[in-house]
Amino acid sequence: MINFKLNGKDTSVDVADDMPVLWVIRDVLGMTGTKFGCGVGLCGACTIHVDGEPLRSCIAQAADIAGANITTIEAIGETPSGQAVQEAWLHLEVVQCGYCQSGQIMSAAALIAAVPEPSDTDIDEGMSGNICRCGTYVRVREAIKEAAKSAAAKRAE
């Protein structure tokens, strides 16, 4: 049994230690918001947060998250940075097919939580692990800046 907190809830799964966390989430727990894109850490579609840090769940093993606090796209809206990112994403109509967007949003939320006023270089560094085949990058960049501003404004309130 591997125990961890998933979106605030105590969760235990009976899986092999080396099972990738992605498949624990998608196929064992049935939460499909976290996406499979490459399986080898190259695309970012599977990004989740482990204790607030972004992690590519396709190359993390179940045993690695024992005792950890996991957040997925389904609950990222409950964090201030996640909420700001989702709002900016909708406001600027970032999304196209949407398949990569769970991962984009998870990476973006982690970025603005860590770097409250991200520069273009910060955005390049924080987001270049996330591929978007629909090419939404122009709007991803704008939306991160907008989200960072609105998150900062909320903190100031």
């Binding site: 049935g30 499909t32 796209i73 809206g77 989702q86 994403w89 109509e93 999304v95 967007q101 949003i105």
Partner: peptide, 21 residues
């Protein structure tokens, strides 16, 4: 006009073929 398909694409709720259960 705001897209009708995007709200569920920012919170993981949208269902693609691969998400079928």
């Amino acid at each position: 006009v705001k897209r009708l398909d995007t709200a569920k694409k920012v919170n993981g709720a949208a269902k693609f073929g691969i998400d079928v259960q």
